[in-house]
Nucleic acid binder design. Structure first.
Lengths: 333, 333
DNA sequence: TTGAAAGCGCTAACAA
DNA sequence: TTGTTAGCGCTTTCAA
């Protein structure tokens, strides 16, 4: 890179030392204003750009965040990424996106990569099978803050977490169902190992338990499109079939709706539907539009980034933050 | 980073020089096998990881690709990203994803960022308003290959491009319609200013013109969900309504299906539907599943990456590559 | 207020 | 076959 402008060149042109140029550029108090002026002007003119690798090498701190997501072809994660992207840019950071495919080994490799590259911070959504958090902890020990989002370690007392107020979201949905005096609810939740699932399930159940004449509740666990279709088809074929389907995620919703359509059932007359959704996209795709509890990925991202910034800038204790959710009424319940 | 293992430490422990250790690790022919053994073993044991910043600083070459996309909350781009992610990983590279929001200024900042960080290569989908390609060229001059995808510079004689065979996709759809002896087709295309639209429209029309008893063809342009719904609702309300709807994109498809559902029309009995789609996701969401011509973002990504690798490894002339598409039969036509 | 010099971890030309 | 040395571009301590 013969054409690259370096501090050396600037200092030579100005007949000053490299260190003076360096300090002038950072407004070091020791440097005379006149010198600062000169240096800054020349740097501006020459479009000087400090070499990030050299900075990293001497300070071992970079302006890059790592982000580990299970997948990128998923509206929830992309809206989250979107937010992190936007906010990182504003804060002067860039993003390296690492996809885990929900594979704990790949995840481990990514964490190592982040450590090796001394990222300024890591956002992570753990895989369902992540049980060993040592690698994550080794980052924290190396002074690289980790902010877990959405799927977080079961014991979050010694880490930063940013989540949906999962209990709230599930309660809101449960209460909406109660209000409609339904008799039998088929509720599909994602994998039981996930803390999201556990929290949502617990809250959902609790609401039902607190009401004397709550509907009968059947619970299944899966987040696989084909499985979902199968379960729902089977349940809806029963004589004593559910009058309401609760879906914990968008994927579950799309599977459920596919099954309902194939069975040619009317919503909400023959079967009512309510979901928790990460965006308005899927609920609004159907006719009638689906009633849902929104948990916005974008908002989660904004929160995650602000949490990260505080971690990076100050020495704060671990934070546990939540994004609230709310009911959006469609005509499906 | 007191805990970081460096070449220095290894060489001290082994009582050899740093350069010997360095060369041993890269299987330099000059080094004795016994030394290589020792060094490699110790490195393995200590989990030595070379510092990428130091490498970059002394070799000015990184293992990071830059990727500029208009948006990330879009299934087409995410499936492209997905592929680039997967393939980069295999090839030992990581990805920095930069989002332009279709803003030429942001795009320019991103290009500069990539230059400054000496990325190993850049993938770019230009904004509709990009007219100045000097920055891109400055990368190429600095020996950073650029591979344009999907939306590429108008004059692609001096750059690498990876695109869909847009004409083919449209012809395939048109021919599928012809085969079914339809009488009246309502075709919705995206914005007429885009080269994709122009190519697809032209090819679509051409097929119809070459056939004596081709269906009547009505064409509209929009890629806005609400507009699409409106247009389709209006057209389908006519006495002389179309018996087939062609959608140029997934967004158009979702708008069309929403309109069809609201009108409670049966597919394909009352109105047939065919679309061009970037993934199987949307077509398979509906019942019956929609017949579509696939233009896979993932495949485009795989192709883009392989083009990039050849650019990085060999000194090849500019490439102009295409991904072909094919018909996937649903039951909607 | 400024400069000299060491060092971050690695590569590579040159010397031994 | 191995070691010495300079250098990549920057930060920072210490000395002037």
């Amino acid at each position: 890179m013969s054409d690259a402008i370096t501090l050396k060149k600037i200092s030579q042109l100005l007949n000053i030392s490299i260190s003076t140029a360096s300090r002038a550029l950072k407004d070091h108090p020791d440097i005379a204003d006149s010198t600062k002026q000169k240096v800054k002007e020349l740097a501006e003119m020459l479009e000087y750009e400090p070499n990030p690798y050299a900075i990293q090498l001497s300070t071992s701190s970079s302006r890059v965040f790592g982000l580990i997501v299970p997948e990128v072809s998923n509206l929830f994660y992309t809206s989250f990424i979107d937010a992190i992207e936007d906010e990182s840019r504003k804060a002067g950071y860039t993003l390296i996106i690492l996809k885990s495919d929900d594979d704990a080994e790949i995840e481990a490799a990514h964490i190592k990569y982040c450590k090796k590259h001394r990222v300024a911070g890591l956002f992570a959504c753990i895989t369902p099978s992540t049980s060993n958090f040592e690698l994550f902890q080794s980052l924290s020990k190396s002074n690289i803050p980790v902010v877990f989002f959405d799927r977080v370690p079961p014991d979050n007392s010694n880490c930063n977490t940013v989540c949906f107020a999962d209990e709230r979201a599930a309660s809101i949905a449960a209460e909406a169902i109660l209000k409609k005096n339904k008799k039998k609810v088929l509720a599909i939740f994602a994998e039981p190992s996930l803390s999201v699932t556990q929290k949502r399930l617990k809250a959902f159940r609790k609401v039902f338990q607190q009401h004397a004449n709550a509907p009968k509740l059947d619970i299944y666990h899966t987040n696989n499109y084909e499985n979902i279709k199968e379960i729902i088809k089977k349940q809806l074929a029963n004589a004593d079939r559910p009058d309401t389907i609760f879906c914990m995620t968008d994927v579950i919703l799309t599977g459920a709706m596919k099954a309902i359509h194939e069975l040619k059932l009317m919503v909400p007359e023959e079967v009512a539907v309510i979901t928790i959704s990460n965006s308005d996209f899927f609920p609004k795709l159907y006719t009638p539009e689906i009633t849902y509890v929104e948990t916005s990925g974008y908002k989660l991202g904004v929160l995650a980034l602000s949490a990260m910034i505080t971690c990076v800038e100050e020495d704060v204790p671990y934070q546990e933050l939540y994004v609230d959710s709310y009911l959006v009424e469609g005509q499906s319940l």
